[in-house]
């Protein structure tokens, strides 16, 4: 069963880290190891970091017209900063992997099962 691991954190902290190359290096090393562990376990299906919400564009279609706005769809204290999709037998396994995510300390990791589209007839 596939689960999406959504990584939330305060991106201000993340921006501050840019001024400390050592901290940044450590964080990337932690994520590299985490990703490698997932690959080695054979459970990783996808995953990526996301650029900060300042780069986000929100799109809505109103009366057939595409309306775009600058920024994320909602202002929140913690922002979505990346994701993984993993394939594990059950929620307990997914939660174990989520807890190992480096961003789980200080941030929040949301675990959601990935829905499967109904087979088209």
């Amino acid at each position: 069963m596939q689960y999406m691991i959504l990584i939330y954190g305060d991106e201000k902290n993340f921006a501050q880290m840019a001024s400390s190359p050592e901290a940044q290096k450590q964080m990337y090393a932690a994520f590299t190891k985490y990703t490698k562990d997932m690959r080695d376990a054979g459970i990783m299906r996808a995953g990526s970091e996301l650029k900060p919400t300042s780069t986000a564009t929100t799109v809505r279609v109103k009366n057939g017209k595409t309306v775009t706005t600058d920024g994320p769809f909602a202002e929140t204290k913690e922002q979505l900063g990346g994701y993984y999709i993993i394939d594990v037998p059950n929620l307990d396994e997914a939660v174990k992997w989520a807890a190992r995510c480096p961003a789980a300390q200080g941030g929040s990791i949301e675990v959601r099962p990935v829905g499967v589209m109904p087979a088209t007839a």
Binding site: M1, P89, N90, L91, D92, R112
Partner: peptide, 14 residues
């Protein structure tokens, strides 16, 4: 059902 919460007695640590 949808998140597949396992049907088991948890092991040691938890």
């Amino acid at each position: 059902l949808e998140t597949r919460i396992p049907y088991e007695v948890p092991s040691g640590e938890s």
